[in-house]
Computed example of a mutant assay.
Amino acid sequence: MSGQDQAGGLVGPAADVLARLVRTALDEDLGGDPGTDVTTTATVPADARTVVEVRLREPGTVAGQVVWVPLLADAARRLGQETPVVELLAADGSHGAAGDVLARLSGPTRTLLVAERTGLNLVGRACGVATATRAWVDVLAGTGVEVLDTRKTTPGLRAWEKYAVRCGGGTNKRVGLFDVAMVKDNHAAAAGSVVAAYRAVRSTSPDVAVEVEVESTEVALAVVRAGGRFLMCDNMTPDDLARTVAAVRALVAELDGPGGRVLLEATGGLTLARAPEVAATGVDFVSVGALTHSSPQLDVGLDWTG
């Protein structure tokens, strides 16, 4: 997911990831590569040129602007036309009001029409995720607690949606199954216990961060005694969560000394209304699957100006 630095210091999806996303989306719309737009080909002269503006129809957090350049370049290649000029007027991560112009695009009309729906789909999706994430970041402001995303993403759009989470001020937890280990209830059942599962993962993948899902204070303490220092507290009440946080931090201080560090995450059934109460328990993170699996699309349109 690393890539060149974008406006606002955000790092967008790597160029190859973005190129693959654009290529797949255009193939889907055009029926292959180069494919065809039967309506545009029939009604728009090849030499026609247009200026259009990408505009927010409702307020929200801007995200996905990084798509316009590679998208229009790929569309132009397929049509054998010059690549339209892209003027970005709002940075990813910024707040936009209804009616704000995000970008101005100018060039061959056929290319702009071919790319229009793909671009609006991707930008609208990204803005929706970023806007939902920003709501969590705002409600947690001043608590020191970060909001994390999860793997509950749209297949094929994970890199895009995780970038949108960052645009909204959130933090990416892990990319997939390969970069961070997460011991959950099914792994514990297969291994015989949570502690056995943790030890098995730590033994086979010593250089990978390991997070362990726990559902009680007792299990959390057992994992800490086994060496675990990254715990996900699942579906605990605020009172149980507070007791678990206090007990775990006390045990880590006893085992590792005053400088001992453990990372604690709350997850399961979280809502914006409950977020301040959960943050007050002393956790470091809250993880919210709804950022990516339930965020509504933000309404973004494309208006012709000439």
Rank of each mutant, 00 (worst) to 15 (best):
P238G: 01
V62N: 09
V252H: 11
V283L: 07
A242C: 05
W304V: 10
D16I: 00
L270P: 00
P45M: 12
T111F: 03
T237F: 04
L88S: 13
T237H: 04
V129K: 01
E58H: 00
G144D: 04
L102D: 15
V283G: 06
P258K: 07
L291S: 13
V262F: 07
V194F: 00
V288W: 08
V11A: 10
V210I: 10
V38R: 12
T111N: 02
G9C: 11
V137E: 03
T111E: 06
G228W: 03
V180H: 01
G124H: 00
E277D: 12
L102R: 12
R243Y: 04
L221M: 04
V223C: 15
V219D: 15
V262N: 12
L302V: 13
K184M: 05
G306L: 14
L112Q: 10
Q4K: 07
G192D: 04
T50P: 00
E277C: 03
S287T: 09
L251P: 08
F230A: 13
V11R: 15
G80R: 14
V114T: 14
G192W: 03
A14W: 01
Q65I: 11
V286G: 09
T217V: 09
G64S: 15
E87K: 13
G60M: 00
D303P: 08
T292R: 07
T217F: 01
V38P: 04
L140N: 00
T267G: 08
V52K: 06
D284H: 13
Q4G: 07
W160K: 02
R49S: 06
A190E: 04
G260P: 15
S193I: 10
A222M: 12
G142D: 06
L122W: 10
V283D: 02
D47Y: 09
E53A: 12
D240C: 00
G99F: 04
R134N: 03
K173T: 06
T150Y: 11
D284G: 08
P108S: 12
A242F: 04
A189K: 05
K152M: 09
D29E: 13
E213H: 02
L263C: 05
M182L: 15
A103M: 10
R57A: 14
